[in-house]
């Protein structure tokens, strides 16, 4: 069953002339893991904001078409209802720390306080969420004393604790070092395995290939590719349009030109490349 349903969505930010999203049609099934790739300015973030209800409820601007996520219809609901059902985390971990709390535990409980969860229920929910993302040992630290990867995991936990039906992640690792990236993807993998509906905008294609069920490619506000990771991430169209592609795909493509790559499919990850060259 589709939990996300976008029909002919076109959106323009206020005070601008050009549409950032053009005629987007997108269905995502419950429990599906969808990755969104696209160069900077392709509309990835705007798509994320649209799915999370911030377009148009926070950013205003002009939207046409219909947006339906987790049973909510964009034009007939408030941002308040959206945040109860759709979680959003984004790039800069530092800016996602509320600044209103002095410990990680309180920081994670902030969202629950705002939506009026009773105190008895709050503690176990925070503890469970922290266990899920593996940050139980950070509970008493100040959110500002943490590394980027830890802060981003706190930000993710703060969203997860609100038990959203759909999780939207806008390049959650783009400002992190490799260790932080691995930590955050570890959490995302756990969520995917638990069957959460995740929509992830991301540049790091090798990671996407590892656990996305499906990939869409955005270019100038339009979906130009939609399919399985292995197909989309190795498509020649990505090269033409200036997308970032995996180094293993590049190597195999060069190898194929001189007859060293004999498979019909190109690899995205190291393992696939090693397998392909062995044959």
């Amino acid at each position: 069953m589709a939990i996300v349903n976008l029909q002919n969505v076109t959106y323009r930010y206020p005070l601008t002339d050009e549409s950032v999203l053009k005629n987007i049609n997108l269905q995502v099934d419950e429990g599906e893991f969808l990755a969104v790739i696209g160069p900077n300015g392709s509309g990835k973030s705007t798509l994320c904001y649209t799915l999370a209800g911030f377009v148009p409820h926070f950013f205003k601007g002009e939207i046409s078409g219909s947006v339906e996520v987790a049973g909510l219809e964009s034009s007939a609901s408030t941002l308040d209802e959206w945040v109860m059902n759709v979680g959003l985390a984004f790039q800069n971990p530092f800016n996602q720390i509320s600044g209103a709390k002095f410990t990680v535990f309180e920081e994670i409980a902030f969202g629950l306080e705002n939506i009026g969860v009773p105190r008895e229920e709050m503690k176990p929910r925070v503890e469970d969420a922290m266990k899920l993302t593996g940050i139980t040992d950070l509970a008493d630290r100040s959110p500002y004393s943490l590394s980027g990867g830890q802060q981003q995991r706190v930000a993710l936990t703060s969203i997860l604790v609100m038990q959203p039906k759909v999780l939207v992640l806008d390049e959650p690792t783009s400002q992190l070092d490799p260790i932080g990236t691995r930590e955050v993807f570890g959490v995302i993998r756990t969520l995917a395995e638990k069957g959460m509906t995740v929509i992830l905008a991301e540049h790091k294609v090798e990671w996407i290939a590892n656990f996305a069920d499906r990939v869409i490619a955005l270019h100038e506000g339009q979906i130009i590719l939609d399919g399985l990771p292995g197909e989309v991430l190795t498509s020649d169209i990505l090269l033409e349009k200036g997308f970032g592609i995996s180094r293993y795909t590049s190597v195999a493509r060069k190898a194929r030109a001189i007859g060293l790559w004999k498979n019909s499919n190109l690899p995205v990850t190291l393992d696939e490349a090693v397998d392909g060259f062995k044959r």
């Binding site: 911030f54 941002l79 945040v83 009026g116 105190r119």
Partner: peptide
């Protein structure tokens, strides 16, 4: 940063109309 932070706390129900509770 203010805009990003506004989105971040909004995503956690900051302006929710429900009656707030507190952890402690």
């Amino acid at each position: 940063e203010v805009e990003e932070r506004a989105i971040a706390i909004e995503a956690r129900g900051f302006t929710s109309t429900r009656v707030k509770t507190s952890l402690n």
